[in-house]
């Protein structure tokens, strides 16, 4: 502990004004900066939402879901199949994505949540990979060709809506979804009794059980909720990006990013995924824009993860709150040095 006041409390003036200013900025964003920045903004909002969805199960409940990206892909393919194979408008696909993800997540949750720690991580990872391989073989998902979604003004609700395919429109959809995800997380995990139950089971499952918490039930609820949130973003993303392929939206990198964002920001915190999501997303975009390399962000992120785990396990939020000071890093380094003892 460095003893200094948390950064968030050092903002001058009433905090409400800062939130108000942020809200106005987010609402006016596409009009202030144009469609290129609207696209950047909607990507950032989507990834913040996805990171938060992983944070629910991985951060608050402490279950390392290494297959979470599968639900993003399932949401995308549910919407895609409804629109391409059956010709429904997007809203139907959206509803289908929620239902499919919820049902599947529940069916997966019942056996899989009995596992813990590394076993849970490997099991979800294996499941997500088999879903991806299945999508590559199945015909309804387009197999190795992928799916091309229709995108015209009448794909939203069936009748022509003039604004429904612009960058600005998708920006506001993502803003709405991201804000909703944040609100749900805040209410459920930070304010409601539910959040205390989740944190109790994370910290000590037996103790939580002995207090009369039905941990099995709570775990399943968190898992299904987090998976549905990921699927919701997946369905909108599929509609926005128009072409979906198992190697893109079911790729393990989707899960990787969610985990990394939540971890960098700070696991089990409301605002952590915002910072982590912004940082990772911008790193990736900037590395492709300024360095001309679309893969350079990977080693960069890998290094960031290792440094975070080594020196700042509570993430950016931990640093902002003043939980990790220079002394902690120094102590950490000293302990680490003692472990090098080969010769």
């Amino acid at each position: 502990m460095s003893g200094s006041a948390p950064v968030l409390d050092r903002l001058p003036g009433d905090r409400r004004y800062w939130f108000l200013a942020l809200g106005v900025l987010l609402l006016a964003w596409p009009f202030l900066f144009g469609s290129f920045w609207a696209r950047i903004g909607l990507g950032a909002l989507m990834w913040i939402g996805l990171a938060q969805s992983w944070n629910m199960i991985g951060g608050y409940a402490g279950y390392l879901d290494f297959g979470h990206g599968a639900y993003f892909g399932i949401g995308g393919f549910a919407a895609g199949i409804a629109m391409v194979q059956f010709g429904y408008p997007f809203v139907v696909g959206f509803a289908l994505a929620i239902v499919v993800a919820a049902v599947l997540a529940y069916l997966v949750a019942v056996p899989t949540l009995r596992l813990t720690g590394a076993y849970f991580a490997i099991a979800t990872w294996a499941l997500a990979e088999s879903i991806k391989q299945a999508a590559l073989i199945l015909e309804i998902t387009g197999g190795t060709f992928g799916l091309s979604l229709p995108r015209s003004p009448d794909t939203f609700i069936g009748i022509a809506v003039p604004f429904a395919i612009s960058e600005t429109f998708f920006y506001y959809v993502m803003l709405l979804l991201c804000a909703a995800t944040m609100l749900v997380t805040y209410v459920l995990f930070e304010r409601h009794e539910f959040g205390y139950r989740v944190k109790a089971l994370r910290d000590d499952q037996d103790a939580a059980e002995s207090l009369g918490i039905d941990t099995t039930r709570v775990k399943r609820q968190v898992y299904v909720l987090s998976c549905v949130v990921a699927a919701v973003f997946g369905s909108v993303y599929a509609w926005y990006i128009v072409f979906i392929h198992p190697n893109d939206i079911l790729a393990p990198i989707v899960t990787d990013r969610m985990v990394i964002m939540a971890l960098l920001g700070g696991l089990g915190t409301l605002t952590g995924p915002i910072f982590g999501g912004l940082l990772v997303f911008l790193l990736q975009r900037l590395s492709s824009v300024f360095l001309g390399s679309s893969t350079f962000y990977l080693p960069l992120i890998g290094t960031l993860i290792m440094i975070t785990v080594l020196f700042a396990p509570s993430g950016i939020i931990g640093i902002l709150r003043g939980e990790i000071g220079r002394d902690d890093v120094r102590k950490n380094l000293k302990e680490l040095g003692e472990k090098f003892d080969l010769l």
């Binding site: 390392l64 720690g117 080693p299 992120i301 290094t303 993860i305 302990e335």
Partner: peptide, 27 residues
């Protein structure tokens, strides 16, 4: 040591290492 969720941290660390190695070779 005294960090929270040691198992999670170990898993995520090797995960970061894997990302680093794959990304470096790819780049």
């Amino acid at each position: 040591g005294d960090r929270p969720h040691p198992l999670l941290m170990g898993l995520v660390f090797t995960f970061g290492l894997a990302t680093f190695l794959r990304g470096s070779v790819l780049t």
